[in-house]
Computed example of a mutant assay.
Amino acid sequence: MKTSPPTAAELAILRILWRDGPATVKQVHEAVYAGTDTGYTSALKILQNMLAKGLVSRATDARQHVYKAAVSERPTLNRLVRGWMDSAFSGSSLALAMQALDARPIDQQELAELKAVIKRLEAGSD
Score class of each variant (00 low, 15 high):
86 D>A: 12
14 L>H: 02
126 D>I: 12
77 L>T: 07
79 R>Y: 00
100 A>C: 14
95 A>P: 05
107 D>M: 02
10 E>A: 11
2 K>C: 03
11 L>D: 05
8 A>N: 14
90 S>F: 09
98 M>P: 00
88 A>S: 11
98 M>D: 12
5 P>A: 14
85 M>T: 14
44 L>Q: 15
8 A>L: 15
20 D>E: 10
99 Q>I: 01
22 P>K: 09
11 L>M: 14
73 E>Q: 12
38 T>K: 07
79 R>T: 11
57 S>I: 09
54 G>C: 03
116 A>L: 09
83 G>S: 13
22 P>F: 07
27 Q>E: 15
19 R>C: 03
101 L>G: 15
18 W>P: 05
23 A>I: 00
12 A>I: 04
4 S>Y: 07
29 H>V: 03
120 R>M: 08
42 S>T: 15
98 M>C: 08
69 A>P: 01
9 A>L: 08
124 G>C: 08
99 Q>E: 08
77 L>C: 02
43 A>E: 06
119 K>V: 09
7 T>L: 01
39 G>M: 04
32 V>S: 06
63 R>G: 13
44 L>C: 09
26 K>F: 13
24 T>C: 01
65 H>E: 02
35 G>Q: 01
85 M>R: 15
125 S>N: 14
65 H>T: 08
99 Q>V: 07
1 M>N: 08
98 M>R: 14
75 P>V: 04
93 S>V: 09
13 I>E: 04
111 L>Q: 12
53 K>Q: 11
43 A>G: 15
2 K>L: 09
60 T>D: 08
42 S>E: 00
50 M>V: 05
107 D>W: 05
110 E>W: 05
9 A>C: 01
64 Q>R: 14
112 A>W: 05
3 T>Q: 13
108 Q>W: 03
86 D>Q: 13
39 G>H: 06
89 F>L: 10
83 G>F: 01
56 V>K: 00
92 S>Y: 07
124 G>L: 06
79 R>G: 10
95 A>K: 14
96 L>I: 09
55 L>K: 03
118 I>H: 11
12 A>Q: 12
123 A>N: 13
21 G>H: 08
46 I>A: 12
117 V>S: 02
56 V>W: 00
40 Y>A: 07
49 N>L: 06
91 G>K: 06
108 Q>S: 13
21 G>P: 03
1 M>V: 04
75 P>W: 00
111 L>V: 05
64 Q>D: 03
67 Y>N: 03
91 G>T: 05
